[in-house]
Amino acid sequence: MVPVSYYLILSGILFSCGVIGFLIKRNIITIFISIELMLNGVNLSFVAFAAQWQHLSGQVFVFFVMVVAAAEATVGLAIIIAVFRTRETLNVDHVNLLKL
């Protein structure tokens, strides 16, 4: 059987990939996908911990995370469309009316 720690390391790697993608990518959609990757990394660690503790609540949590991620995606894509309509670009470097 694969030890739980392997899953945790994989989830850490997934989460870090998401963080790196969020920071270096310039396309809004890709940034958005990176966030989804982070959430899925978290999901994997929830399931791994649930297996470790023999406790179902970790797995139940994953369902909630999926539902919330879907809701977030809906709103996020709507916002991205609103930005695209006013700016006609999906590059975050060009979405810069407000100084950062």
Binding site: F22, I28, I79, A82, V83, T86, R87, V95, L98
Partner: peptide, 12 residues
């Protein structure tokens, strides 16, 4: 444009 930009930044 500023409002949707602010929304996008807040969201991401």
């Amino acid at each position: 444009a500023t409002s949707s930009e602010s929304s996008l930044k807040y969201f991401l």
